[in-house]
């Protein structure tokens, strides 16, 4: 609690971090705006909210997927809060003032966990409200089914932020750390391409999908599959075109484990970096 307090104090008094943080939480609320989208195109009237995106339990899937896209805003706060400690050399001062390296890292991890918690709670509340207004099904069992998407959401954010934390500590510069994150995304893309191209020749039993899902960003991305093709409206269109989607939209337990293992590795890696380095 004390460590969390210290970190929040640091973030709170930084204007940029404060703005980004509030911006992030406000943007979460902005998903409600989607409900007001009305497209009137001649005779075709289209209201997004009435297309079933806010139906329970589908709303859990849809909202967690969309809102998770906003995570980059908070990622910037995390990367900046680490990089600043290095550029202001306040990390050195913190240690001299009697924080241990472990405590320093803990204060960051606790902050991340707290924000993941708040973010998940907000998603839960907003989805509950939006669903309550627009959902066609309001039975208790249906409302509270598929809540595993919230768990996946929390794990997804935590995994992603742990990766950011690790990169920031590794690289010490916010711009470069975020750049590296983008680069890593490209790297995983290339790796996937290479795997698709060569893997079946080398090890025929393994598909590229089976390997790539163990990569950090891909495993984080896979936690919540895209919800769009699951919409009945789109399913109908696809069926008419003779292109039925057969996709597993569920949350995979293996996937959650993979991301949690990555998170642990990133935090452990951050600690060994901190410990080994002279300041």
């Amino acid at each position: 609690m004390r460590l969390l307090g210290i970190e929040l104090y640091k973030i709170w008094h930084n204007k940029t971090s404060r703005v980004l943080m509030f911006g992030y939480f406000l943007l979460i609320f902005s998903i409600a705006i989607l409900s007001t989208i009305n497209v009137e195109f001649g005779p075709i009237k289209f209201n997004l909210a009435e297309q079933g995106i806010f139906n329970f339990p589908y709303i859990w899937h849809f909202n967690t997927f969309i809102i998770a896209l906003l995570k980059i805003f908070f990622a910037i706060v995390i990367v900046a809060m680490i990089a600043n400690e290095y550029s202001y050399k306040t990390i050195k001062q913190n240690l001299i003032d009697g924080m241990s390296k472990g405590e320093f890292l803990k204060s960051k991890v606790y902050t991340i966990a707290t924000f993941v918690g708040i973010s998940t709670l907000l998603v839960f509340i907003i989805s509950l409200i939006l669903g309550g207004i627009y959902s066609d099904y309001n039975e208790f069992q249906i409302i509270f089914s598929e809540l595993e998407y919230l768990l996946a959401y929390a794990v997804k954010l935590f995994g992603f932020f742990s990766f950011c934390l690790f990169l920031a500590i590794l690289i010490k510069r916010s711009a470069f750390a975020l750049g590296f994150l983008a680069l890593w995304q490209v790297f995983e893309g290339i790796a996937y391409g290479l795997l698709r191209w060569r893997l079946s020749d080398l090890i025929p039993q393994l598909s590229a999908e089976q390997v790539i899902k163990f990569f950090p960003l891909r495993s984080i991305g896979n936690l919540i599959t895209e919800p769009f093709t699951r919409l009945s409206a789109i399913q109908n269109i696809a069926d008419q075109l003779g292109e039925g989607f057969t996709k597993d939209y569920g949350v995979s337990f293996l996937n959650i484990t993979v991301v949690l293992v990555w998170s642990a590795l990133f935090i452990w890696g951050s600690y060994s970096l901190l410990k080994g380095r002279d300041l």
């Binding site: 004390r2 307090g5 210290i6 104090y9 640091k10 008094h13 930084n14 204007k15 600043n84 202001y88 050399k89 306040t90 050195k92 001062q93 913190n94 001299i96 003032d97 009697g98 924080m99």
Partner: peptide, 26 residues
């Protein structure tokens, strides 16, 4: 302890910086 040059959070006031140090030093 003071080492080489002073390291504080530039965006905080003197008072806020000292308050933070008190939190760390308990």
């Amino acid at each position: 302890a003071i080492i080489e040059r002073p390291n504080f959070y530039p965006y905080m006031t003197a008072l806020q910086n000292l308050n933070l140090i008190c939190k760390i030093k308990q």
